[in-house]
Amino acid sequence: MTALADTATESPLARTRRARKIVRILGELHPDARIALNFSNPLELLVATVLSAQCTDKKVNEVTPAVFARYRTAADYAAADRAELEALLRPTGFFRAKANSIIGIGAALVERFSGTVPGRLDDLVTLPGVGRKTANVVLGHVFDIPGITVDTHVGRLSRRFGLTGSTDPVKVESDLAELLERRDYTTASDRMIFHGRRICHSRRPACGACGLARLCPSFGLGPTTPEEARRLVRADTEAVG
């Protein structure tokens, strides 16, 4: 398997073409790539995404049914009994900080947005505990507004693919936005997250089992023999992200 040569001399056009090909192949490798959080409306996704920080999606999905049944509206969260909410959120970790954010989100939605989750990034990032990553998750998956979600996987893969040299999520988002078609922002993020969880792990990527080897300048960071690499591939997508 031949890896891509160093990208230092790669032209902007060549990088753009390679980035879009990577996204296309990721779709073939992970046709089931999608958001793993369970939700039925914008408020539920917003809350679930806040809870997913430093927690697996699987654990969040175990916790949210009771949360969503108890708190159905922004006003419910705003008026939540802190001890009760913290008890429900405890399994997700950092439950006190998350309770603070969710109560604050409920109050802000009631006070400034008539209890409704706004569909603009500039509005979403004014909510307590909501950054661009969370905002783009909500915009892309409930409002059909394309957004690049730079979580730990997207950031890591973007650097390994040679699509950015930055560790700053905002700069990574900007670099990817210049390379990808806007309509692909959300799906590209979902696909990169799946690939990062299943194959391109942070410590030992399964390079020899990766269908992107010829497009990746980082090929060889992990085992390159197919037999050894296949043992590293994870079917479980429920990793912390």
Rank of each mutant, 00 (worst) to 15 (best):
G241I: 10
G222S: 07
I193D: 07
I199E: 01
F113D: 09
I103F: 07
L51F: 04
A75D: 10
A235V: 10
A79S: 12
A209V: 07
I25A: 14
L29R: 08
A80F: 04
L157A: 13
T225S: 09
L221W: 05
L121I: 11
D144M: 06
R204N: 12
L4Q: 02
S158R: 05
D81S: 10
R90E: 09
R197N: 09
I35W: 02
R96E: 11
E228F: 01
A5V: 12
L139S: 05
L179S: 07
A235R: 14
L4P: 01
R234S: 10
G131Y: 03
R120K: 06
I193Y: 06
L180N: 08
H153K: 09
R197L: 06
C200Y: 00
T225P: 10
R160Y: 02
L127Y: 02
L88Q: 14
L215N: 01
P223W: 00
D151I: 05
E44Y: 02
G241E: 05
C210T: 00
G119R: 15
Q54E: 15
V130C: 01
L215E: 08
F94Y: 13
R70M: 11
G131R: 02
G211F: 00
P169N: 05
A74L: 10
A78E: 08
T2P: 06
F219M: 07
R230E: 15
F194E: 03
S114M: 03
G119I: 00
G93A: 02
V142S: 11
L157Y: 03
G129P: 03
G129A: 11
K171H: 13
H195Y: 01
C207L: 02
P42N: 11
G196H: 15
E86H: 15
A206Q: 00
L232S: 12
T134P: 00
R120G: 08
R160M: 05
D57Y: 08
P146F: 10
S202L: 12
E228Q: 15
A79K: 09
V60Q: 13
E181G: 14
D81P: 03
A229C: 05
L121K: 14
R96C: 03
M1K: 10
V110A: 14
L127N: 04
A48K: 05
D236R: 12
V23N: 01
T49Q: 14
D81I: 11
A33V: 03
V63C: 07
T225I: 07
V233P: 02
A5G: 12
R198P: 05
T152D: 14
V172G: 03
A108Y: 02
L232D: 04
G220W: 00
S52T: 08
S158T: 07
R72K: 13
E44V: 09
E84W: 06
A213F: 01
G147C: 15
V23C: 09
V170R: 08
R230P: 13
R72D: 13
A33T: 15
A177F: 15
D190N: 09
E62M: 12
D236K: 11
G104L: 04
S174E: 09
V150L: 08
D184R: 14
V154Y: 05
D236L: 06
V47K: 03
E84Y: 15
R191P: 02
R18A: 04
T186W: 00
D122H: 14
Q54H: 14
P217Y: 02
